[in-house]
């Protein structure tokens, strides 16, 4: 009987202690925020979404190679000799057309590993976190600013240039061979 009373007393005591603590918390300011109306300020360097400043991209493919999940797809085309693509803001010369720079944010695991190797600091995380989509395909972000026509044009130009170069090489080779034959003929006499 006595132990029962004791236990009952202890139960009530712990209930009142608990109530006291919750009452104290009741008068403290709330820690939650009403999300869509009020937004928390993200700290600098928060990792929310990848962004590429395509003007600075030299198409070196280092970020794609650093990615553990292969969510970055880069395709480049060599610029022909008659075109100068200029320099990036960090002073690196641009030699490639970046015809495709796709990042699949549905695959991305926000590890930040692609950001560090970039020589021109053109790929980085931005603090945009509301980009949910109904279709998964819409999460593939295309950063290349070349139009499809331009890509075809650039590719054709390169093919033409390489063909010309090859032809020149062949001609040069033929000339060499002819000279060699002549030389051989001379020595043969």
């Amino acid at each position: 009987m006595q132990t029962q009373i004791k236990e009952g007393f202890q139960t009530f005591k712990s209930i009142f202690i608990g109530m006291g603590i919750t009452l104290r918390h009741f008068f403290q300011p709330s820690v939650t925020i009403q999300y869509p109306e009020v937004r928390d300020v993200l700290p600098a360097g928060a990792r929310s979404k990848l962004f590429v400043n395509i003007d600075d991209c030299i198409g070196c493919n280092l970020c794609a190679r650093a990615c553990p999940v292969n969510c970055i797809d880069i395709e480049t085309v060599k610029a022909t000799a008659d075109i100068d693509l200029g320099k990036t803001s960090t002073g690196n010369p641009k030699r490639l057309w970046v015809t495709q720079f796709d990042i699949d944010m549905s695959k991305c695991m926000y590890c930040d590993l692609c950001v560090h190797p970039c020589p021109t600091n053109c790929i980085y995380m931005v603090q945009e976190y509301e980009y949910s989509e109904f279709d998964r395909k819409n999460l593939i972000f295309k950063f290349s600013d070349l139009t499809p026509d331009k890509v075809i044009e650039v590719k054709e130009k390169l093919v033409k240039e390489t063909e010309e170069k090859n032809r020149e090489k062949e001609l040069a080779q033929q000339k060499k061979d002819q000279e060699k034959e002549k030389d051989a003929g001379k020595t043969g006499e």
Binding site: H25, A46, D112, L113
Partner: peptide, 29 residues
């Protein structure tokens, strides 16, 4: 149920520290 919420208030403070240094709240790398 109550201690769970109070624990989360404290845990949130730690996660905020982590977010400031690493940029992520849960999976830091």
């Amino acid at each position: 149920f109550t201690p769970f919420l109070y624990c989360f208030i404290e845990r949130e403070k730690i996660l905020t520290i982590f977010e400031k240094i690493s940029g992520a709240r849960l999976l830091y790398n």
